[in-house]
Amino acid sequence: MNRLLICLVALMIGAGIARADQDDARPPIGPVLERMLVDYIRPGYAQVNTAASGLQASVAALCASPSGEKLATARSAFRTVVESWSRMEWLRLGPVMSENRLERILFFPDRKGTGRKQVQAAIASSMEAVTGVDTLAGQSVAMQGLGALEFILFGSGSDALAQSQASHRCAFALAAATNLVNLSDEIIAGWGDETGLVQAFLKPAAGNPLFRTDREALNLLLGQMIHGLEAIRDTRVNAFLDKENPDHDRPKSALFWRSGMTVPSIRADLEGLQALFNESGIEVVSKDSAPRLADTIRFEFRQAIRTAESLEAPVGDLLADRETREKLLYLDYAIKIIVGRLDQEFAQAGGLAVGFSFGDGD
């Protein structure tokens, strides 16, 4: 018995030494984190800010001189914001996670329609608190961001924005657009060089509140992609698509169905996560053990994105047509495949054990 115990201990020590040697041989994660910051995080949030500023300007022009043409411009600017935000929304890290910024930019899922009801009530009662950016920021998160703006610009009664009698509704839209500019300004400032966040993000070390080792940093970065992809399936695609029964599809439960941005936002979600994979250079951790895996993952991303690009109609029409509904089912499956590649193959190739928890670093 003692001999068996000694052998087991020796094997455990040997495995620990081998694992330490393997970790030491892996490329350092610092350059990956720096590329992620410089080539993905900062440019991505800058695009959100630029798009939000464009929406603010177009809504201000609409409010100053209402017309059908200016309403169309404001609606187009809204769609641009949705696309830019969708490319960044799954980065659940840093200043976007403070002061409810994430929910203030987009409150979803909203299964009980809380946001719509609150926005409708505010418009119906000409609620003054929603017409100033400072007072709006103190209201429910569901009334501040893209969900509220979509209803204001595309929901019932929105055509009145082309006429002067919708001045309260337009002021609400302007306050919400300005709020998006302010929130994106705050996020950009939070990722500035002088902040403690950037110093912690770039240098894993003992006592670092983000991650102590390269291994933990890899876990966090890979987890951002995996959890983001899972959320796209669970809270975006599966919000309206019932894989078992077409009669149970729910087109009006889809995010951005009023503006026709349901699938374009999903496509932008995927493009953003693909960009995170590419721009960070995270593939370096798998080069030695699985040199072709990164190309395989990129191929799977392209397949999913091309499928989304081919689905141009409103979500209700897509669900009603057998052929396009089949494409939605394939999109769901294609996302699942990418999750599997990252969660199993890439994680293992990067030195993370199968079953590694991407949520807590265990």
Rank of each mutant, 00 (worst) to 15 (best):
W191T: 09
R306K: 12
V237E: 01
P66Y: 05
F299T: 15
C170I: 10
A77K: 03
V237Y: 01
K70M: 12
R298P: 04
T324A: 12
V133F: 01
N2H: 03
A129G: 01
V315F: 12
A313C: 00
R325H: 05
D110V: 10
I338F: 05
A239Y: 08
C170Y: 07
E83K: 07
K112E: 14
D21V: 10
M97W: 02
G228W: 00
D362T: 14
A171Y: 01
K117G: 01
S357D: 01
Q274F: 04
A51D: 11
I123T: 10
I335D: 01
L93C: 12
I188P: 02
T324V: 08
E283Q: 12
A353E: 13
L222G: 05
I188H: 05
L93I: 14
S286W: 13
D242G: 07
E186I: 04
F346A: 00
P109M: 11
M97Q: 14
F151Y: 15
R111N: 10
L62N: 10
V81H: 02
V130P: 05
T50A: 09
T135D: 11
R250E: 14
G30I: 11
P95T: 03
E283S: 12
L319K: 02
D321C: 06
L91M: 11
G145D: 08
Q22H: 11
D249M: 05
F151P: 10
M225E: 07
H168A: 11
L180M: 11
I335A: 00
A189F: 06
L218G: 05
F211M: 02
R236L: 03
A166M: 13
N238T: 03
I226G: 00
F299P: 02
L342D: 06
A347K: 06
W191F: 13
Q56G: 10
R26K: 06
A349F: 02
L71V: 11
G132S: 14
